[in-house]
Structure formats: structure tokens, C-alpha cells
Design a binder for these strands. Structure first.
Lengths: 133, 133
DNA sequence: TCAACTGTTACGATGCGTAAATGTGC
DNA sequence: AGCACATTTACGCATCGTAACAGTTG
């Protein structure tokens, strides 16, 4: 069982963020010490990693909660086939959303590269001040 | 001279965003009508385009203001050589920051793709329920 | 007992969205 | 005169950062 500091360190999130995700219902600590310190299992560290992977794709916390719920249903061994089916559909939705966002990211990247290039161009001191433009 | 709606449309920003950037000191309208309507020049539209290009790289509004200021110094014909030099250094800093963020974006993209793939994998209904894991 | 860690609470920053009530332009 | 467009003001939201102050752990 790990304390929040260890967990945050390993996943690369701040304590605040971990607590925030808890507040938002993404993951509650498996246990607490007598004094109230949060205690986490390795599984929960994985869950946090998953969350951290989703974030850059711009999913909101609510969406992440939904996705995690679907995952939970699929992972659990005692969920009905209907639930599983719904969960799979939910995941499929997220998968295509993720694909769309990845495309957007790719476009962003391309434009950002253009921009950076332009920036470097402006940075170079013009030789003979042949003011073009 | 264009009104804010035209400008926002052409650049692809909301009115709110344009006004917000003004509030933050990124660009003031070149003029106003008698009644107070903001009026912009084509140059200002370009400036907004530039701002819009920077945003995806995660620069804060303050950073954008600094970068735009540096650009202004370089573009202006009556700025001292010291100012120009400082501006070039500032731009160089932004250029390397941009490069770093582009690298980060690229990494994000790669991980996002992994993630999406994983998501699609979970989505497929397992054939004979050979519960692996 | 001390240092390092954690707890809760709460206010702040960023970047806008979104009304509400009103005025302007053509 | 009408209707689209604009103005200011202001509150709301997501996602944390950052104290402040107190308690816990080893």
C-alpha cells in the first residue's frame, strides 16, 4: 500500500491532481490509515496511469469517468453480458473520439512546426537589412 | 475597416475570445465607430491569425503578449538596435520553447496512438471468452 | 521529539462560454 | 422602423496551483 506521495511521484501527477481526481469520482484510495492518510494499491496506480494517458487527448474528467466505468465493467468477472455490450459500445465511441482527436493533434503539430520555423526565420539577424516585405 | 464579427469569422475565433485578447493587451482595435463598435484593419486580422497559431503550442496569453511585442519591435522601423537585439533574443527563446513543445506534442501523439489502439483492442468482443489476464 | 509527509479548506488563475440588458448601423 | 450586429458587465466552468494551518508517521 502506497501513500499519495509515492503514487503521485510514480505516475507523474501532483498530489492536488490526484486528490482532484478523487473528488471527481475517478478513483478513491483503497484504504486509509488510522490518521486519515490515503493508501493506494498498485492497481490504482495503473488506473492513474491510464487517466494520465487520456488527458492529453482532451477528454474531460466526466468522460474519463465514463470510460473508466466501462473498463471496470469489462474487467469485472461478474457483470452481465448486456452491461458488457454497452461498455464495449461506450469504449468504441471513445476510441473513435480518440482517433478524431489524434487527427486534430497531428494537424496541430504540422501547423506548429510551420510556426516554429517561421519564428526561427524571424530570429536570424538580417544580413544587409534588405527589408523585404 | 472590419467589425469584430467579420474579424472573428475570418480568423475562426469567438467574439468573446477576441475581446478577451484585447483585455489582455494582445491587440486593441485600430478604431471605433461613433457608437463604440470596434474597427479592425487587415493587419490586425493577421495579428489575430498569428495568435491563433501560437495557442495550440500552449503559450499563455502573457507569453503571447511578449512574443507579439518582440515582433512589433522587429517590424517597426524606428526601434533602436538594442531593442531589436533584445527582441531577437526573446524570439529565439520562444522558438526553442516552441521546439520543446513540439517534441512534447509528438510524444503525446505517439502515446495517444498507443492508447487509442489499446482502446480499440478492448472494444472487440472476445471470441471464445478465453479470459486472458 | 523531530522532520517529512499528509489532511482539509478555500481562494486564485487561465481562457474563455454564456447570458442579460442595452445600444448601434444600415 | 426593424433587425442584425455590437457593447459592457458579470457570473460560471474546468483543472488544477497555492497557501494556511493542523494533524500523522516513523
Amino acid at each position: 500500500m502506497l501513500q499519495i506521495g509515492e503514487v503521485a511521484d510514480r505516475v507523474g501527477l501532483s498530489l492536488r491532481t490526484v486528490r482532484y481526481y478523487e473528488e471527481m469520482g475517478l478513483l478513491a484510495p483503497a484504504d486509509r490509515t488510522e490518521g486519515g492518510f490515503r493508501l493506494y494499491t498498485e492497481d490504482q496506480v495503473d488506473r492513474l496511469q491510464l487517466i494520465k494517458q487520456m488527458k492529453p487527448l482532451g477528454f474531460t474528467v466526466q468522460e474519463m469517468r465514463a470510460l473508466l466505468h466501462a473498463r471496470d465493467v469489462l474487467v469485472s468477472h461478474d457483470s452481465s453480458e448486456e452491461d458488457r455490450q454497452a461498455a464495449r459500445e461506450s469504449l468504441a465511441g471513445f476510441a473513435s473520439a480518440a482517433a478524431a482527436r489524434i487527427d486534430a493533434l497531428r494537424e496541430q503539430l504540422a501547423r506548429a512546426e510551420e510556426f516554429a520555423k517561421e519564428l526561427r526565420r524571424r530570429t536570424r539577424k538580417p544580413r544587409a537589412s534588405s527589408a523585404k516585405r
